[in-house]
Design a protein around this nucleic acid. Structure first.
Length: 285
DNA sequence: CCGGAATGAAGAT
DNA sequence: TCTTCCTTCCGGA
């Protein structure tokens, strides 16, 4: 379930479980076996995320760069004292195991990642340098995002997904933040005013921090929760309560008109054609 | 700019 | 068995 909040949450949880500890590194599946052997027994210095990229610092200028792609997962677990770490199930590209203070062990299994590679600090910087500001990072500079959006004719829905514009926003957050601000997804970036961009950015900072905390994407305002509206909670594998993401054909929670779906840059885009009224360019009736 | 490929697993048919 | 997915990169028009 990989948007930026997932990776920041992982960085946090992996840090909690492994930082400062000797880590057993392996690749049960074998595709990271050579690198794993080099890293086995190192102390994990820390973990951090930039957008949808995760970096594990194993000291000596060695970092594991992970990108989950569309469907990668990094699952963490712990065993009680004297219990064995579970045998790997399926395609486990990378496994980390470390002792816990309580006598048990912490473990983490990476599957399905599009990137799992050993890089240097220079490699980390190279990735970070080509990313736009990340709403989940305290050191983010939103001006850099505005510099791209405010002068682009590309649709907002495309710009928000472009990791060189803003880092960490994925298909769910883009659809939801556009809905929350009643913005037409096809509206060109350059038609936005700075004030609106600032509101968008601030909202992403809030929503994505919520996502890190809860591990799911909830974007509905208090008046649109299932309890407030007396409706059934959303049931699907993603968990969160949302306005438009994968709700095509269902009534908009605000106006009741059917949520729409279209392809944009090979991805499904969802929006409400009524709430997110078509943007009419200046000078056109 | 477009299609296709590359990562795994779950859910639908 | 097929389809889908919270992504990105690459190669050929």
């Amino acid at each position: 379930m990989p948007e930026g909040h997932t990776l920041h949450r992982l960085a946090h949880d992996l840090g909690d479980a492994f930082a400062g500890r000797v880590v057993r590194v392996s690749s049960p599946q074998g595709r990271f076996a050579t690198e794993a052997a080099l890293l086995d027994g190192a102390v994990l210095e820390g973990a951090q995320a930039w957008g949808k990229h995760l970096f594990l610092d194993l000291g000596a200028d060695r970092f594991v760069h992970v990108h989950l792609g569309l469907y990668g997962t990094f699952v963490l677990g712990a065993t009680a004292v004297d219990d064995a770490v579970p045998a790997p199930v399926g395609q486990v590209r990378l496994r980390l195991v470390a002792a816990r203070d309580d006598g048990g062990a912490a473990w983490a299994d990476l599957r399905g990642a599009t990137a799992c590679e050993l890089v240097t600090g220079a490699g980390v910087r190279a990735v970070a340098d080509r990313l736009g500001p990340d709403p989940l990072r305290d050191d983010a500079d939103p001006d850099r995002g505005w510099a791209r959006i405010g002068r682009s004719r590309a649709p907002l829905a495309a710009l928000l997904m472009d990791q060189t514009v803003l880092a960490g926003v994925g298909n769910v957050y883009r659809a939801e933040v556009l809905f929350r601000h009643r913005l037409d997804p096809y509206r060109p970036g350059e038609s936005l005013r700075r004030r609106r961009y600032d509101e968008l950015w601030a909202d992403l900072v809030d929503l994505m921090h919520d996502g890190v905390r809860t591990g799911r994407i909830d974007t509905v305002r208090p008046e649109h929760t299932p309890e407030a509206m007396g409706r059934e909670p959303r049931v699907d594998d993603h968990g969160g309560e949302v306005y438009v993401y994968r709700r095509d054909g269902l009534p908009c929670l605000v106006c009741g008109s059917p949520v729409r779906r279209a392809e944009l840059a090979q991805r499904n885009l969802f929006w409400c054609g009524r709430c997110q009224r078509r943007h009419v360019p200046r000078g056109v009736q």
